[in-house]
């Protein structure tokens, strides 16, 4: 591992620095900017133009975008995700019957689809279509927030561990190992049982608890990726150049390390997002994730999955499950597409 003192020794040659400044970070080919000859002779080179790194990073994204937009899978998953996001934000847009998710008519319990309730009625005589539409919010919120939460924790700690190294790295890595050893579902059950929600808890507190539980267990995944990615980027010439030019570590991390090391994290987080949604459904199914009056697909599946109900009213189970599967599928497909575009080596 190289540290700053080593770096200074290495950066004896001005020419090397100049070369390094133009080195493409992720194998992206671009015409190298020509460096004026007088720059080479100048003992105190001008500050590294930020523009270059920024433009390279943008071009990475641009390149990914070009790869992705040519793939039908991307458009299918993007369309699905768009619909589900819209459903989560404005469920009322999708409900044409005017029924609220609270609406119930016990006399209609377990009845099949009719002209108003196109998915039929559940155990309480509530409209399954309306409940399924409104259930999207919980699942999407949990999925997106958990993916973000795990990514933030993982990226911050991973960068620190990878960049500073030494004792901090060891400490963080072993801590991550401890959390990594706890299976997501088992840990989720443990945490949700310890911090139970009551009927009076506000909606966002209930969701937040699930998000916290899953984030706390999901970050080691991101941490490991980020750490190794940072360690890969750190010895790069452009980082050395920045150091040699006297940029402070925060600036180096912010402008050079993170933009060049973040790609795998984006990929993994997108794929994990799908599995977080599935885990939330599982926790709710077990009766410890979200709880009524919160509406979620997991709760709906849990309520409808006794064998006698499946035999007599399979529609109660079918529709929430279908929506759950579609959402998870959409996010995982999107993750695959992003991975293919950003990390061609894994293709």
């Amino acid at each position: 591992m190289t540290d700053l003192t080593d770096m200074n020794k290495e950066s004896e040659s001005q020419a090397r620095i100049a070369d390094a400044m133009t080195a493409p970070s992720l194998g992206i080919e671009e015409p190298q900017p020509t460096i004026p000859a007088d720059a080479l002779e100048d003992p105190a080179p001008q500050p590294v133009p930020d523009l270059q790194t920024v433009s390279e990073e943008r071009s990475l994204m641009q390149d990914a975008w070009i790869t992705m937009r040519s793939r039908p899978l991307f458009w299918i998953s993007a369309a699905l995700i768009f619909v589900f996001l819209l459903m989560a934000a404005f469920p009322q847009l999708f409900v044409f019957s005017g029924r609220t998710p609270d609406w119930s008519d016990l006399d209609k319990a377990r009845m099949g689809p009719d002209s108003v309730a196109i998915f039929g009625y559940d155990l309480q005589g509530q409209d399954i279509y309306v409940r399924t539409i409104y259930g999207a919010r919980a699942s999407i919120l949990v999925g997106v927030c958990t993916a973000l939460g795990a990514a933030v924790i993982g990226v911050v700690l991973g960068t620190l561990g990878g960049f500073i190294g030494r004792f901090l790295d060891t400490l963080l890595s072993r801590t991550a190992d401890v959390f990594f050893a706890i299976p997501l579902l088992l840990g989720g059950i443990l945490i949700m049982y310890t911090f139970r929600t009551t009927a009076e808890s506000p909606y966002f507190v209930v969701v937040f608890k699930v998000v916290m539980a899953l984030s706390v267990l999901g970050w080691p995944n991101v941490y490991r990726l980020m750490r190794s990615s940072v360690m890969q980027v750190k010895p790069s010439e452009y980082v050395m150049a920045a150091k040699a030019l006297g940029a402070n570590p925060l600036r180096i991390i912010g402008s050079h390390i993170i933009p060049n090391a973040i790609a795998p994290v984006i990929v993994v987080s997108t794929i994990d997002l799908g599995s977080y949604i599935a885990t939330e459904a599982t926790l709710s199914y077990l009766g410890i994730g979200l709880q009524a009056p919160a509406i979620s697909w997991g709760i709906a599946i849990s309520d409808a999955s006794a064998i006698g109900y499946v035999r007599n009213a399979p529609h109660m189970l079918l529709f929430p499950s279908l929506f759950l599967s579609l959402t998870v599928l959409a996010f995982i497909m999107m993750g695959e597409v992003v991975r293919d575009a950003m990390d061609p080596k894994l293709r």
Partner: peptide
């Protein structure tokens, strides 16, 4: 199940805000 049904009936018939605490 029944507690939710009771809650729903109270919501429908009295307009009270009701929740089940399990």
């Amino acid at each position: 199940e029944w507690a939710e049904a009771v809650c729903n009936q109270w919501k429908n018939n009295l307009g009270v805000t009701c929740a089940v605490e399990a």
